[in-house]
């Protein structure tokens, strides 16, 4: 009897998560990690937002999905919209405008810092969302970077801290309700027989949905309420889990599909002679013969 000696297959590679964490790389964006390591200055533009770096640290984040600092400050009248616009016109950038308002006694330093940090983490969450396109980095100058951080702020933010928080937030949403559809889809109220009583902030979300016939996504609602978008996502996922909110069903006009798509399997002859299958059959026969 002959014994067939074969080399064992190599072990499948496993990415060591602990080691990745030590390097500050949580798998969010390898490019960002590299930029942080080389202390780059400039703007990283990703699919859903951008991060402004100075010396490898994040000084500002922007995303169309997140209401910015000015929305958080003006939506509830913390700062009068006119006063904000004037400060913005005088200084030319949001950061300096904020400090001007603090110096002028329109705004408490702590309030500005709180809103800035909240807006930064909020926009960064979306900017660092998984994307289908590669990010682009535009190197900038030190002068541009100077416009960013101020001494009184919790900025600049280390990249690793921002990535870790972004991963934690993804995990938080996933644990509330694992279906991410409601994060981006237009929403509608669902009428369940006996939903659990919503919290005051959840009621605000429901009220916006009830009021408007227009398409409402989580981002629209966050802007309307002057709240961070991530915080709105948390409430919406909780409402989705409770069955009080669901994605708006697509318009029926979109459903009919092109019927004349050829079946890809039809082209394959029934007696397949794929070399791999042939090999597997020979292997099976050899094993049975042992």
């Amino acid at each position: 009897m002959t014994a067939v000696q074969t080399t064992p297959p190599p072990r499948l590679p496993v990415r060591s998560k602990a080691a990745a964490r030590d390097r500050g790389w949580g798998g969010v964006s390898p490019m960002l990690t590299r930029l942080a390591a080389e202390r780059a200055t400039g703007v990283l533009v990703r699919e859903r937002g951008s991060l402004h770096l100075a010396g490898g640290r994040v000084v500002h984040a922007d995303s169309p999905s997140a209401p910015g600092l000015e929305v958080l400050l003006t939506a509830h009248g913390t700062v009068d919209a006119g006063v904000w616009r004037q400060a913005l016109a005088e200084t030319g950038d949001r950061h300096r405008a904020g400090h001007l308002l603090v110096d002028g006694g329109h705004l408490a330093a702590g309030a500005l810092e709180l809103c800035r940090l909240t807006a930064l983490y909020d926009a960064a969450y979306f900017a660092l969302a998984p994307s289908s396109t590669p990010g682009r980095f535009r190197y900038g100058t030190e002068a541009e970077a100077d416009a960013g951080p101020g001494p009184a702020c919790g900025c600049p933010m280390p990249v690793a801290a921002l990535e870790r928080e972004t991963l934690r937030r993804r995990d938080l949403l996933h644990r509330i309700w694992p279906d991410p559809t409601t994060d981006e889809a237009p929403l509608t109220r669902a009428h369940r027989a006996a939903p659990p009583p919503p919290t005051s902030r959840q009621r605000a979300v429901l009220a916006v949905l009830a009021e408007s016939a227009a398409v409402r996504t989580a981002t629209d609602i966050a802007r309307e309420l002057g709240r961070p978008a991530f915080h709105t996502l948390v409430d919406i996922r909780r409402l989705a889990a409770a069955g009080a909110v669901r994605p708006r069903p697509p318009a029926p006009a979109e459903t009919p599909e092109a019927p004349d798509v050829p079946d890809p399997l039809a082209a394959i002859p029934t007696d397949v002679t794929d070399p791999h299958i042939t090999l597997l059959k020979r292997l099976r026969d050899a094993l049975e013969a042992l």
């Binding site: 109220r189 939903p195 009583p197 429901l206 009220a207 009021e211």
Partner: peptide, 21 residues
């Protein structure tokens, strides 16, 4: 309040919903 559920709540409150934050 009560078990009245989500229906009617938003409509009844109208614009007040925006101050609920």
């Amino acid at each position: 309040g009560g078990g009245g559920g989500g229906r009617g709540r938003g409509e009844g409150e109208g614009d007040a919903g925006h101050d609920v934050g």
